[in-house]
């Protein structure tokens, strides 16, 4: 009797927890191998660099996790990052106040997020289409505000934001770590987070259980807008300018990281630890490719392959678990 071939969905396979651990183990193993094989990989400097390079993706992955958990989707985050950066730099040059600039940029992000959420939740337009549209619109807004040019900043206080080391670690990394803590708590310890999962798992059941589905979705997009704008502000500070064409295909990095971390595109399943691992995998791959001087062209191929692998993984997981 052949017993090993079909992927029957009957629970013979390891439970979800184990699948999650296997990803952690896989990552640790890869990390160990890379430490020995790739020069300069395992050094404090490189680790900090890696963390810094992933800080934007990491922050936004936290909110994207909520979004995907609720069976939604957001393609506009890349454009929001660029727009917020440009807006922040412009406001800074106009008023000279870091506070006004940051608050203005975050407010801009909140508005865009709320717009996304309102259209998706209340006008019932598909999230993919809506955010595809806002992705173009907001990218356009970025160009309009900046007149198509990079907006340079010279405010030292603002520039410090992106590089200031705190206990030897740059501020953006701290902010990202804070995001992971906060959204981990939001997902696991608050009604809001559990409701997001319930909505993604079965929207109609969630509604009949008294969950205000529309308001929750709106709120998720709004929060996503704010956090994404914050990522844009930090990016602007790191590159000392607001670039209207920054963060191209950023949304795909974020979504790939989430899916790699076991967040289901079908909604209803997400863990913060998974997302963290997903982000680390993405960051490590990019980092290693840079260290080993992989041609930029090939990097695209590699990143695309990872995205595909991530989605495939999600597929397999869903197929296995669908009793």
């Amino acid at each position: 009797m052949r017993h090993m071939q079909t992927e029957n969905n009957d629970g013979r396979t390891a439970p979800a927890a184990l699948a999650e651990y296997s990803l952690v183990l896989l990552y640790l193993a890869a990390f160990a191998v890379l430490s020995f094989t790739v020069d300069n990989f395992f050094s404090l400097r490189n680790m900090l660099g890696l963390a810094l390079s992933m800080s934007q993706v990491g922050m936004v992955a936290c909110t994207m996790m909520l979004c995907l958990a609720a069976r939604d989707f957001d393609l506009s985050v890349g454009s929001i990052v660029a727009f917020a950066g440009v807006l922040c730099a412009t406001l800074l040059n106009m008023y000279g106040s870091v506070l006004i600039a940051i608050v203005g940029a975050l407010l801009g992000g909140a508005l865009i997020g709320a717009f996304n959420g309102a259209v998706i939740a209340y006008l019932r337009i598909n999230a993919l289409i809506t955010t595809l549209a806002t992705m173009l619109i907001v990218r356009g807004l970025g160009f309009i505000v900046s007149d198509g040019q990079a907006v340079g900043v010279s405010n030292q206080g603002f520039i410090a934001l992106g590089s200031l080391p705190l206990l030897g670690v740059a501020l953006p990394v701290w902010i990202t770590a804070l995001c992971f803590v906060v959204f981990g708590i939001v997902l696991n310890q608050t009604v809001f987070g559990r409701n997001a999962l319930a909505i993604g798992g079965n929207p109609e059941a969630a509604r009949l259980a008294g969950i205000n589905v529309d308001r929750n979705r709106l709120l998720i997009f709004l929060i996503q807008g704010v956090v994404t704008a914050l990522a844009g502000v930090i990016l602007a500070s790191r590159i000392t300018s607001g670039q209207p064409n920054a963060a191209q295909s950023f949304e795909l990095d974020v979504i790939s990281a989430c899916v790699l971390g076991g967040v289901s595109l079908a909604g209803g399943r997400a863990t913060i630890s998974g997302v963290l691992i997903g982000v680390l995998i993405m960051g490590t791959v990019n980092n290693v490719m840079n260290l080993t001087n992989v041609d930029a062209f090939y990097q695209y191929v590699a990143r695309g392959s990872i995205l595909l692998a991530a989605v495939l993984l999600d597929q397999l997981r869903t197929r296995r678990e669908n009793g």
Binding site: R194, L197, N202, A205, G268
Partner: peptide, 30 residues
């Protein structure tokens, strides 16, 4: 199936989905 259960969530999640709001800590945490 369509209107009752949230399939991937645990039995406890499904039971507490509604009544949990009466038992929050600091009105925020489960």
């Amino acid at each position: 199936k369509e209107q009752g259960i949230v399939p991937h969530s645990s039995v406890a999640e499904n039971i507490n989905m509604s009544s949990r709001r009466h038992h929050l800590r600091a009105r925020l945490f489960l």
